[in-house]
Design a protein around this nucleic acid. Structure first.
Lengths: 193, 193, 193, 193
DNA sequence: CATGAATGAGAGTTCATTCAT
DNA sequence: GATGAATGAACTCTCATTCAT
C-alpha cells in the first residue's frame, strides 16, 4: 500500500470515528462513511469491505492507547495513592466527555459481532487494577479490602456510568460520588492528594 | 378493539420480546416479527406501526411490573436487612439469567430514540434505594453510609454488569462479589440472613 | 336491499363525493372512503366493490340532474335570449364554485376507465346547444352564426376553464370575458337582459 | 455527472414521456419506469427520486421548446396574418396528434402537486397571444376585437379540446371548426393564406 | 348488515457490492 | 487509486379483498 493509501485510510478512520460516536455502530452504513469522507463508493471499498472492518481498526487504535501508567508507576515505585488519584482523574475526565464516546457503538458492535475483543479489554483492565490494589495494600497505603470484589465493583460501576450517560443525563455530582466512594473504600478519609 | 385483537397484540409482544432479547433493538425488523409471530405483513401493521411502537409497549409492561416490594416492606415495618436480601437475591437472579435480558435492546433503543423513559426508570430506582437506605440507617440496621454515593454505585455497578454480561462472559463469582460487597458496605460482616 | 342499505349507500355517495372533489379519482382508496364514512372495510364492501363503482353511481346522479330547461324553454316558446341568459348564468355559477367540482376526478376517471359515459354527456350537451341556436336563429333573436363552430367553441371553452381552474387561479374577469364573448357572438351588442 | 449519467437521464426521460402520455401521471410508478427503461430499481433511483422529479424535468424540457416564433415574427415585421396561420397550423397538428399528448398527465400532476408551473405556462401563453393581437390590430390586419376576451376564449377552447380529446373521440371537423372560428373572428372572411 | 382481523401483492426506498472507465 | 453507474436483495408500508364472528 502506497503513501496515498495510508493517508486515505487514516482519513476514513477519523471521519468514521465521529460517525460511530454519533450514531452507534449498526446505524452507520458504508454510504454514510462515503459521504462524510467525501469518497466514492468504489474508493471506500478499495480500503475497507465493511463497517465492521473499519470499526475494528478504530478499536484496535484505541486499545493500543490504553493507560499503561499503572505498570509504569509501580515500576518507578511511585506512591499507590498517587497512581490511584491519577487514574481516578483520568476516569473522571472520560466520564465527563460523553460527547466523543464510542461507548454505544462499542456495545452495539460487541452485541452483534461476538468476539474476544471485549473480553481481552476487560481482562487487561482487571489485571491492572488488581496489580494496583495488591501494590497499595502491600505498601499499607490502601485498606486491606477484598481485592476481587473491589475491582469488580470499580470496573462495572465505571462502565455502567459510561454507558448510561449516553442515555440519561448524569450530573457531575454522580460521577464524583462514585469515584469518591472508590477512593474512600481504598484509602479512607485521611487525605486527598 | 375486540378480544381477538388483544390476543394478537399479546402474541406479538411475547414473540417480539424474545427477538429483541436475542438481536437487540435495531437489528429487528417488522418482517422478522411477522415471521416469528406467523403473521402476515399487513396483519402485523394492523396492530403496530413500527418496531419502536412494539418495543415501547413491551418496556411499559416491564416498568409496570417493577419491584414494589421495597415500599411494601417498609410499609409493613419489615426488617431493612430482610428487604435488602430479597432485593439482592432478585438482582442475582436477573444477573444470572442473561439469556432473556433486554439490556442490549433497551440500550440501543435508548441511544437511538432519545426519550424520557430511561430517565424515569432510573429515577424510580434511585428513589427506592434511597428510601431503603434511609429506613435501614434510621433503624440502625445499616451502617451510616453516604446514601447518595452508595445508591449511585449500586445502581451503576448493577447496570454495568447487566450490560456487559451480554458482551463478555461473566462468571457467577463476579456477580456474587459485587452483590456481597454491597451487602457488606451496608450491614458489615455480622450476619447473613 | 332494505331501507338501511339504501340509506348507507346514500351516506357513502355523499361522503365519497367530497373526497373525489378534493383528491381526484385515482388518489381515493376504499380505505379513505371507509374512514370518511365511519364504516368498516367489510361494511363498505357489502355495498360497493371498488371506488370505480362508487364514482359511477355518483356520476349517474349528476347526469340525471342535467339542465333540461332548454327543452322546456323552447317547448314553452320562451325567448331564446332569455334561455341563453339563464344558461350563461348557470355556467357562471358553476365556474365560480370551483370548490366542489368533480372536474379533476371525472377527467382522471375518464382517462383511466375509457367508457362511453363522457361521450354521451358531451353529445347531450351539443344537442341542447344546437337546439337552442337553431331556435334563436330561426326567431331572428340570434345572429346567423355557424352553429357547429359556435357550439364547439362554447363547449370546449367552458370545459377548458372548468378544468384549468382546478390548476391555475382564474379570476372572475376571465369567466366574464368568455361568457360575454359568447353572448355577444350570438346576440350582438344590442341589449343585455 | 459523467457522460454516462447524462445519457441515462436522457433515456429515462424519453421512455418515461411515453409512459406518462399513455397512463397519465399518478398511475405511473417508479417500477414501471424501471421496466420500460430496462433499468434496475437502484439504477433509476440513482438519477431520480420520484416520478414527480422525472415528470418535472420533462415538463421543463417542453416549456423550453415553447413557440417563440410569435416574438420572432413580430420582430421581423412579418404579416400578423401569416404568424396567426402558422400558430393555428401548429395548434391543429398538436390537437390531431392526441397519441403523444401529455395533457392527461400534466393535468393530473397539476391537480396533485399544486405549484406555479402551470400558472407560468398559462401567463406566457396569454402574453404571446396578446402581443400578436395588439400587433395585428395596430396593423389593421385583424378586426378590432376585445383582446382580453378573445385571448381567453382561444386559450381555454384550445385547452378544452386538448384535454377532452383524451376522453372522447374528437373528429377533425371539430378541431377545424374551432380553429376556423378563431381565424374568422380575427381576420374575417376575406382570405385565407 | 356490519365489524375488524388477516392475507398477500406490490410500491417505495435504501444499501452493500461490483465493475467498467 | 478513485469514480460513479448499475444491480439486486431486503425492508417498510399501504391497500384491495376476504372471511369468521
Amino acid at each position: 500500500m502506497g503513501k496515498k493509501g495510508i493517508q486515505t485510510k487514516g482519513l476514513i478512520q477519523e471521519n468514521a470515528y465521529l460517525l460511530f460516536a454519533e450514531k452507534g455502530f449498526a446505524a452507520v452504513t458504508m454510504k454514510d462513511i462515503c459521504e462524510v469522507c467525501g469518497l466514492s463508493r468504489g474508493g471506500l471499498y478499495r480500503h475497507y469491505g465493511s463497517t465492521k472492518e473499519i470499526f475494528e481498526e478504530i478499536l484496535q487504535g484505541i486499545a493500543d492507547m490504553d493507560f499503561d501508567f499503572i505498570k509504569e508507576g509501580i515500576g518507578k515505585e511511585q506512591s499507590a495513592r498517587k497512581i490511584l488519584n491519577q487514574i481516578l482523574e483520568k476516569m473522571q475526565r472520560e466520564l465527563l466527555d460523553e460527547e466523543n464516546s464510542l461507548s454505544c457503538a462499542i456495545y452495539e458492535y460487541s452485541c452483534h459481532c461476538k468476539n474476544d475483543f471485549m473480553i481481552e479489554m476487560n481482562q487487561r483492565a482487571k489485571q491492572k487494577w488488581t496489580l494496583l490494589l495488591e501494590y497499595g495494600i502491600k505498601n499499607e497505603e490502601f485498606k486491606p479490602v477484598d481485592i476481587e470484589s473491589m475491582v469488580d465493583i470499580i470496573l462495572y460501576a465505571y462502565q455502567g456510568i459510561r454507558m448510561w450517560e449516553q442515555v440519561i443525563p448524569i450530573d457531575v455530582k454522580t460521577v464524583e460520588n462514585v469515584l469518591e466512594k472508590i477512593r474512600k473504600d481504598l484509602v479512607g478519609d485521611y487525605d486527598r492528594v
